[in-house]
Design a binder for these strands. Sequence first.
DNA 1: CATTAATCGAGACGGTACGTCCCGTCTTTAA
DNA 2: TTAAAGACGGGACGTACCGTCTCGATTAATG
Lengths: 207, 207, 207, 207
Amino acid sequence: MVGFSQDVGMSKRINSPSGRPRSIQANQAILQATLDLLAEVGYQSMSIEAIASRAGVGKTTIYRRYTSKEELVADAIESLRADVAIPDTGTFWGDMDILIDNAAKKILSPLGRQTLALIISTASSNPQFAQVYWTKYIMPRREAFAQILQRAKSRGEIQPDADVDLITDLVSGSLYYALIFKPTAEPVDTYMHRTITLLLRGIGHGA
Amino acid sequence: MVGFSQDVGMSKRINSPSGRPRSIQANQAILQATLDLLAEVGYQSMSIEAIASRAGVGKTTIYRRYTSKEELVADAIESLRADVAIPDTGTFWGDMDILIDNAAKKILSPLGRQTLALIISTASSNPQFAQVYWTKYIMPRREAFAQILQRAKSRGEIQPDADVDLITDLVSGSLYYALIFKPTAEPVDTYMHRTITLLLRGIGHGA
Amino acid sequence: MVGFSQDVGMSKRINSPSGRPRSIQANQAILQATLDLLAEVGYQSMSIEAIASRAGVGKTTIYRRYTSKEELVADAIESLRADVAIPDTGTFWGDMDILIDNAAKKILSPLGRQTLALIISTASSNPQFAQVYWTKYIMPRREAFAQILQRAKSRGEIQPDADVDLITDLVSGSLYYALIFKPTAEPVDTYMHRTITLLLRGIGHGA
Amino acid sequence: MVGFSQDVGMSKRINSPSGRPRSIQANQAILQATLDLLAEVGYQSMSIEAIASRAGVGKTTIYRRYTSKEELVADAIESLRADVAIPDTGTFWGDMDILIDNAAKKILSPLGRQTLALIISTASSNPQFAQVYWTKYIMPRREAFAQILQRAKSRGEIQPDADVDLITDLVSGSLYYALIFKPTAEPVDTYMHRTITLLLRGIGHGA
DNA sequence: CATTAATCGAGACGGTACGTCCCGTCTTTAA
DNA sequence: TTAAAGACGGGACGTACCGTCTCGATTAATG
């Protein structure tokens, strides 16, 4: 969630608020309904009322937990397991192929498409909110990518002084650009293959 | 406009439609009001009613022309002159600096920010609509970039067999990625400088 | 029509305005469409646009002739032939039965119902407009009724000094009251029979 | 209200519906605004939006309670106290004068005029709705009139076997007819005086 | 016989109101 | 205190007509 931390793990509860505790079933129902609707109708067309109705929950119960749709959706997405397995096939291209294939699969699902649209849509208008996605979605993949590059370095497949962050930016940016604007008709993995090949060679005269 | 092409090439109009013709003053007032409000409050917060009111026009007059806010805004943006001057300083870096500076300036304006947000927001959900932006915004810059690369090739600053399209994708993608996710705190032009340098050198072992 | 008189009957036209004369086919089409729609959807739900469309005529053509829906509808109704045959069976009751039957039939038609509703609806809010209906619809029947009463007088069936106007008001009022509020379940003609019988006898002590 | 009756007679409420109850202040504000506007601009020119605005209430709050303008106005009129005092002066004419005077006063007020127009307007097109007016407006006056007739009977001023209902219809019908079509220039009370005199005498030969 | 001028159909114009959908808040009773 | 239910004032939606206003095309009578 965006700004909530709820004191889990202390053996003795410090502040046990009186009154009825918040329903964890409501929590889950809300998040599930949010993800369902996100996948079905997309972020813009999604109304809080529809989420509440689908979750079998009062609107108040949602507003008590979240102050905006962004926050709610952010939490819903965060609640998903984002497990990025780091492949280790022994070769740079072997690892890359798996990584790209994973990313492509993720994005082909309805939820993936809508999530990407949402990320991109709100990223520039709502920077602190984009941070959630950065942490949840992009960082894991960047780390996986960085590790693959590192291993490629140690195998001598990559220059030892190459700026890993910048390379990651270039490759990530190129991937997103391809996904958004589809500059070619070829499949994403082929296209990325060409891109990375170009990047390996460099374009400068001395190369 | 998005899909209208009328009476091209024939010297005498073929079909003079009956009824009072659409007011071109209303056209312009609508487009101007749309651009104003886009810059002021952003795409999401913009209401058709507000546009009509600001343009001094009935809602009907807008709905007669456009069936959706997307279509209206697309036309408004398309109506802007997108003049991308192609610099020619004699050196690759001299040209690049000017191009990047221009792009950055464009995006720093309120309208530029909102437009970018809009492009990105709708690009993945509304592909045929993204085409408009591709043609209007991205293509001219790509062409400018391609020409600069070509000249750099002929001067021997760039490999003669480099894939210009792919390079353009890489640089464009990198630029958008930086604008959306701001991976570093440094200014955009410095960042792009580093990126292009990396690209020139390449990252492969043989470099 | 409400206020138009167009110089018919003079052998030489006095003012022959230049320009294209008004289409009499348009006139008729407008009136017919008005009556059709009046019968079909009623006065309130009738739009000028629908009339124009049904008549195959531009809205302007209607507005050039009429300044309001009331005026148009008034003229349409006025255009109908309101032929009230005055029965002469030789007896008061014989004549009355025919007259009442006629009136009931008129009102049972869709157009009759809607016209009555319209008369009643606008009568109190738009007195000068009610006049049209008075002249066109009510007067002929009143005159028929008066004549029947007169003949009944001369046959000695009715008191010689009875106030014919007032009697007519009473009977007319009673009929309309019955049609509007339906105080009994019996057919209108039976009800009117009872009413007139009562009126003949009187209710005072001396009777 | 038109068809709602709830919780009559039981000391403890049976069904306490969940959710926030309808605001009775909103109820009253809506009804008052409706009556105000009815008196000021009339039924036709009255918009739901204007009522909501005047009542300081959202449109939704009105639409939640009423599905049409008819229903709303019906309820507003019904909410008025319709207190018809039954005069008892000891003579038929004394009572009648007071009754007629009361009715005339009622109708001379702006609200009275508009209400009459509305009753009459919708009575024939919307029969089940006319019932409300019958019950609320006409019945009390009919009962008062019937009682006066009854007393006149017992005093021997009226025939003992006279059909009170039919007489009431005749007099009511005559009054409405006069109000709608204004057949004479004289004041309503004088006119009604003449009418009732005629009715007392009867018009038949034997009278 | 061309000119002239009003009319024709069509349909766009700036508006008003419609009835609906959500917004985010508030107010009930029940747990 | 939270829950569900649902009413609250409000804003915008997209539609239907209003009565007015151009358009190009007719249609007589006049010059």
